[in-house]
Each structure stands twice: as C-alpha cells, then as structure tokens.
Design a protein around this nucleic acid. Structure first.
Ligand SMILES: [Mg+2]
Ligand SMILES: [Mg+2]
Lengths: 455, 455
DNA sequence: GATGTAAACATGTTTATAAT
DNA sequence: ATTATAAACATGTTTACATC
C-alpha cells in the first residue's frame, strides 16, 4: 500500500467487467458494487448546443418529431439481438456489413463560423434534416452487425496477414475525406475470424498501433469511440484476455494519443447533447494503409533555454517494472529472436530527417510497419520549414512542447491571450494554446532533431 | 492515509503554484519538485492532422514559411512583460483591449465532410492562409493584455453589478456565431477592477457559473482553454485565493461540464498539432447574457426499466463533508439570510416544463440568474417533443443517460455500431455514442420530468 | 430549489522504463 | 531503434452531500 500509485491503482486485479479506474485499492470501493440507478430526467429535448448547428442544418425543424423520443420497449426488444463473444479464441463475430452506398452528402454545402483570428471554427454535429421519427431501426442505412443473422463462430484457421494486405487498398484521394465506402471495402480484408494477435505471419504479437489501425479501418468513417476500440480488442485480440488487468486499455489510450495516425474528433450527435469524441484514422493513415511507429518521448540531456521558476518535475517512481517489448514473450516468443542478442542491435544508426516532398510522406508503402528502413534522402537543411512541413503523421510525436516543463509556457506568456496565459506550466501543453495566438508550438528543444523519420 | 481518495488526493494542501493533481499524498511526489526538461524536438513541421484541414484551407501552401519557427529569444524578450497579480484583493489587471474590428472571415465559405450517416463532420482548425512568419507579435490583431502599458492596480471601489448589466448587451443574432466583436463590447462591462466575488450588489459570493460566464464573455470568441479560465479566476476572483487547495479548479470543471451554457470546442491550431480544447459560451448564453443554473443530478427513487447485469455502482463515501452553499458563509454571510430558516424554504414549488417556442427559450431576460421565477406557461403535454425541443441550454443538465448505470447501455446495444456497443456500461454515456446510430439519447427516466425550467 | 465541495471515474497526454 | 507497460497527471463527467 505504501507504493500505491495515485492513479488507477496500477490498473490491476480488475475483473473484465470492471472499468479501468475502478481502483480496487480504494477503501471506498472494496466490496461495494451494488447497482446504482440515478434518474436522468431530461424530459425536455434541447436544441443543439451550438449555434452553428442551427445554421448548418437550416432545414432542421425546431418542432419536428424528435427522434430521440422513443420508449424503452423498443430498445429492449432489440437489446438482446446483439451478442458479445468473449469466451475463447474462436469467439469472433462475422462482420457482415451491407455494401456501401455513395454518400449523398459528400458535396453538400455547409456553414462555418470563424474566429477573430480567421480560424475556421467548425463543429462536428449531426445533420437532423433527414431524420426519421425513430431511425434507430433504420438498419439498412448503417453498417451494423445484423441482428437478424445467425452468429458465426469463425475458427481462426485463416489468418490472412491482415496488415500486409492493406497496401492493396490504397485508397483514392476522394476517400480520404470521411468516406463511408472505405469501411466496407476493407471489411473483408480484416477477416473477422482471424486472430491478429499472435498471428503466424509476423514475429511476436501485433503491436497495439496495428490493431487499433485495423479496428478503425473496419469502422464506419474509420472512427470509433474509445469504448468501441476496447470492444474491438476484446473481440478480436488477446490483449484484453491475456491479463486480468486493464493495462491493455492504458496501452490503447497511449497509442491513440501518441500515434499521429489517430486523431480525436468530436461529433455532436444530437441537439443539446454533449459532443462525442471519436478516434479516427488520419487521411494519411488511410491513404497509406498503415500507421507509423508510435514514437514517443526520447530523453534529452540538454536543458531548455528558458526554465521558469514554476517548472515542475514529473514525479516518477524509478523501480517499477513497466513492461517491455516482450513481457508476454514468455508465451509468445518467436523462434527467430534470440534472448542472447545484445541490446546494441536494437539501436540502429540515427535516422535522418525526411526531405521528401509533401506528397511523399510514405515513399515506401511498406505493408509492414517499421522495417527499420533508413531513408536514403540526404539530411535536409535544418530549419527549412518547406521540407519539414507535412511530416507529422508519419511519426508518433507531435510538435507540442513538453508538459510539466516551465520553459515553454514561461516563454510564451506574453504571446498568449490575456486570460489564457498560464501562471504556471502544469498541464499538457496543448491545452495552453491561446485563442489569440496560434504560434504556441514553438520549439523548446535547441538540440538537433530527435524525432527522426524513416522515410 | 486510510481514507485517501483515489483521485487527486482531495485536492488539498497544494500551493497555488502546484497543479491540481499534484497528489501530495503520493509518496512519489513528496519533496521532489525539481525541474524537469524533456526535450521535445519535432524539427519537422507536419501538415494538418486531418484531411479536412487541407480542404478547408485551400489556399494553404504546404511549403509556406512556417510561422511556428521562431526562436526562443523572441519569446524571452516578451515573457516578462506580462505580469500576474495575485497578492491581494486589489490585484487586478486592467483589461485594455483594443476596439474590435469586424471579422472579415465571417462570411467565408468552407468545406465540410460528411459521415456516412449524413452527419456533417466538421473540424475546428486554423486558417493558415493569412499567417505571417511570426504573428506572435501581431498584438494589434488580438485582444491581449498590453504588455507595453503600465500596470494598473485597480482598487475594487467600483463593483458595477456585472451580471446585472449583461442584459444591456443583448447580442444580435449575428453575433451568436463566434463573433469576435462580442468580446470587446463586453470588456468594459466587466470592469477589471471589480471584484465579482463577494461583491456588494448580490448576497453572497458570485456563483462559479457566473464567473465562468464572465471569463468567457471577456475572452475573444467567448472561449478559453481551461487553463485560461483558471488564470482568470486567479486574477479576478477570490476563489483561487481563499484556499490552499485546488477545489476551486474542480468546481470550475464541474460547472463547465454540467452547465449547458458552456460547451467544449476543439480547435486545430496548427498543422500536425493536437487540437486544443476550448470552453466556449453557447450562443444562447451569449444571446441572453447569462447562463442558467448549473443544474445537476437529482436523486430519483425509481429504478430504470432495464437494469443490466453489468450495472455498476458508483462507489462513494458517505461521511465526508462536501461543502455546501455557504461553506464560506462564515465570512461572507449576508445579513438578510437567516441561519435558522428551515430547509423547506429552499424547495420552491416544482418548476414546470417550458412550453415556450423555440426562439423563446429565455422569455424573461432576467439579468440576474435564477430569480426563482416560475414560468406562467401551463404545463405542456408530456411527451410532446415539439415543446421539449430546444430547451437544453437553459438548464445545466443534458439529456445524456446516466453514467455507471447499465440500463441505458444494455438497452441500446443493438442499436450501436458493431464495434461501438459496449460489453459493459462503465463510462459516461456520451462516449458510448455510436457512429452509426445517433439515437442514443433515449430517456432512461420513466418518472415525471425532474429537470424543469424557470421559463 | 441553487450552490459549493469532494470524489469517483473516464478519457487524454506524457514520461519512465524494461525487453527486444 | 520499436514496443509494452506502468504511472503521473490533466481534463472532462457525473454523483454525493452539505448548506442555505
Ligand atoms: Mg494520436
Ligand atoms: Mg457544459
């Protein structure tokens, strides 16, 4: 108990039915899992929370029959038709999506508002002009698991090297903009019966980033909420099964956040409802059929130029065992990897910055991620924004300044909005962004580039 | 230590320079606040993370001189010009914003993508067509604290009843869509030298929701990141000063989340950078110059119709002292409130649902919030969606189903995307929303409406 | 009723560290 | 080098409860 982490209680010892943050170590939560039924009321039906929504859906009738007003019975009659298989390796659902139709709304006009800085400020929201009184049952319009079909227990006898076939689905540029047809095109590729984790075509287990890519690739509009990704993992991988902890959820979030191939998008699903966050594949990831390495923080020795007095340290323990590339290798170790290899073989020669043109971020459409390919491109001139531009999606790290580091924010205060400048640098830097100054992504590092590209 | 909460460690005992989650009870964090300097690199400049951004900013040059590439020295020379006053009641900044200009981008066209369900899927992002190489110093364009002006220690001798004057700023409808001029119009109203907390014109301290409203009202585009709201509170209220804890930040977040007058918007500030979340006043709040009560959960006795087997209980301790309307009343108690009043006087007659037309959500533009006014409108027919529609922004609660309650999700599984349906209902319901089914906001309450309106 | 406060919890971001 | 894992932390949502 002395070394109990403050957050999530190491995410261990939780049953599969418990959420990640159940915090079993909390004395408030031990042995007290009785059902709780708060009554959320809301017998009124609010309008869109944003004014843009009203403008962007000009045909929306303020008094149309609200599609949300449905009785419980309808849902109950449908609730049992979707089954969830978790009992074993062969427990996968057939992904029987109807063929897609061209999206008639792709060319629709829209409204947008603009910030005073000229930023277009657009809101994700639903289009309510075409809603039916109870579109819940308009299953023909959505790619959904068919509840009327018998369930298929697919045996995992056909692992079709899923990621290696993604390159054959080089999507046209037109599909890069939220194309719904992309989903159905790829649905058969990711054969639902194949266990991508611990597959035969690749040594070791499939990385999380690959699996997330697959989950989103299969999803409609290439996006899913976090819970949907969790569910996909539970149904299609062993990550969720292989341990009683919820570390796999942590890993999913980690990869979602750190890998530039996944972006969070907010979508307003109804009037007055809070927007829902989705994780979506970036167009680059869709176009290239892969995501790049979830590159992350690399330690740098040099301190920043400006170190504010408020600089805080990230307090970390130092002796915990935090995993590694093959903490599960004891059960999935591949024969071609030797346990006696020196560590130096994992440290390749330093990558060089990519000097590829903008439209050539993925010069090598290698179907397998990170083949340790070193780009033959020469080291580009440093500080050449022309060549650096457009390289984010190929690397996991963003160009945001480091969190918990006073150097960034202290030096940026004067450039921020009068209410936005932070007296202390305490949060992830992205949230320090000022509405009045876009140029908050200054480089805090004066060292040579440490995030390098394989291309 | 035995009763240490699992999250945020009660947010106590933290100095003002510490962030809320510093968790002083953690053994990992005690007495170890040394500066930390991770080097975030990113010498490359990525493109927009979303494809929409490329479309929506068609003039954007992929190779334009990146405005982010600025050297540290520039920022350092400016960093010390913004001062932060926290030492006392009179420590407020003059809010000297330049007069606003009409936003030339208000009528600009935009692009939008659409989901396969027809939802318009728009992304907040920056418009890079007009960027200067170093717009950091284009102070003339932004409403910013003038670093070149001498600082004014305004004595709080002019508390101009700030909220009561908001009604005089009934904004035209055109301003409801992210109008930058709104900010400057109201800037003088919220006199910077006035201490809104513990003001004279209102009994007791100003509610958080009012203060947040003011902070956002003053901000450009009526939006601020969370840290900006924190900063505003530190400079303009006593909430942050009155205690060494960070409970005031918790209260701010609580109000932001629960009050429908505040909405989170995501804005992409640069190519490849993570989107920044802002909190923005809803157009309704702007239009009516106020936000409504941060109505929140009200206990209901009746259980939901469908209670899934996975229904989880929210584990709460029961004996903690959790505040109240006047935990600070010992120092700010108003003479007209008696401590001997029975509790019954705080329970007014039940509010009735508003039957106002859609454009009349605020039939009484009362400048003071919640005057306990009961709408004379007759009780509308229950289940009439026409009359319930459009009432969200006037009440703090949304129509989302309750979290930690299996009833909603269990009954909605069949309507969700095949990857989105959750095997367990464990999170806030908004994140369970399926991309393929918008109708997730079904009513879980079968009781009479409990969220009622004053209008 | 409204409000403040605490807290549980989910979600998102980042750093640390070990294995390979 | 990539990857998995743990964890700290920030942010966002919701419920509980005390006070008036
Ligand atoms: Mg990401
Ligand atoms: Mg809100």
């Amino acid at each position: 108990m002395a070394h109990l982490p403050m957050d999530r209680a190491s995410e261990h010892t939780l049953s599969a039915q418990q959420t990640e943050s159940s915090s079993p170590d909390s004395i408030y939560q031990l042995n007290s899992l009785q059902p709780y039924n708060p009554s959320h009321q809301a017998e009124h039906w609010p309008r869109f929370r944003s004014h843009q929504a009203m403008i962007m859906a000009p045909l929306h009738q303020p008094c149309f029959p609200n599609p949300f007003v449905v009785d419980h019975g309808q849902y109950e009659s449908n609730a049992n038709n979707t089954h969830h298989y978790q009992d074993g390796q062969a427990a996968y659902l057939d992904n029987l999506c109807p063929p897609s139709r061209p999206d008639p709304t792709m060319a629709n006009p829209c409204m947008a508002s603009f910030t005073s800085e000229g930023r277009r400020q657009l809101e994700v929201h639903s289009d309510w002009t075409g809603l039916q009184p109870s579109p819940v049952f308009k299953v023909d319009e959505i790619c959904e698991f068919p509840t009327h079909l018998p369930f298929v227990h697919a045996v995992q006898n056909t692992p079709p090297s899923p990621l290696s076939t993604i390159s054959s689905y080089e999507s046209p540029e037109s599909l890069a903009v939220a194309s719904p047809t992309m989903t159905v095109q790829t649905v058969d590729q990711f054969s639902p019966g194949s266990s991508e984790d611990d597959r035969e075509d690749q040594p070791g287990p499939t990385p999380y980033s690959h699996l997330i890519f697959r989950a989103l690739k299969e999803a409609k509009d290439n996006k899913l909420p976090l819970q949907g990704i969790y569910n996909w993992f539970e149904r299609n991988t062993d990550k969720a099964k292989s341990s009683g902890s919820k570390g796999w959820q942590n890993s999913i979030r980690h990869n979602l956040s750190m890998n530039a191939g996944f972006e969070a998008v907010k979508e307003e699903l109804g009037p007055g409802k809070k927007a829902v966050n989705f994780w979506r594949l970036t167009p680059e990831a869709i176009r290239h059929g892969q995501v790049q390495s979830t590159t992350r923080y690399r330690k740098q020795a040099s301190a920043r130029k400006v170190l504010g007095a408020n600089a805080r340290a990230v307090q970390r323990q130092r002796t915990e065992i935090k995993g590694g590339n093959s903490l599960k290798a004891v059960k999935t170790r591949h024969p071609n990897t030797s346990c006696d290899e020196p560590n130096e073989i994992y440290h390749r020669q330093p990558m060089i910055l990519s000097s590829c043109p903008v439209d050539d971020h993925y010069p090598r459409p290698d179907p397998q991620m990170m083949p340790h390919y070193i780009s033959p491109a020469l080291a580009p001139p440093i500080d050449n924004a022309l060549q650096r531009y457009g390289m984010d999606s190929v690397i996991g790290c963003t160009n945001l300044p480091p969190a918990h580091n006073g150097s960034f924010y202290d030096s940026m205060r004067a450039t921020l909005d009068n209410e936005s400048f932070a007296p202390r640098p305490a949060a992830h830097a992205g949230w320090y962004a000022s509405p009045s100054d876009h140029n908050i992504a200054m480089m805090t590092g004066s060292d040579a580039p440490v995030d390098l590209h394989h291309f």
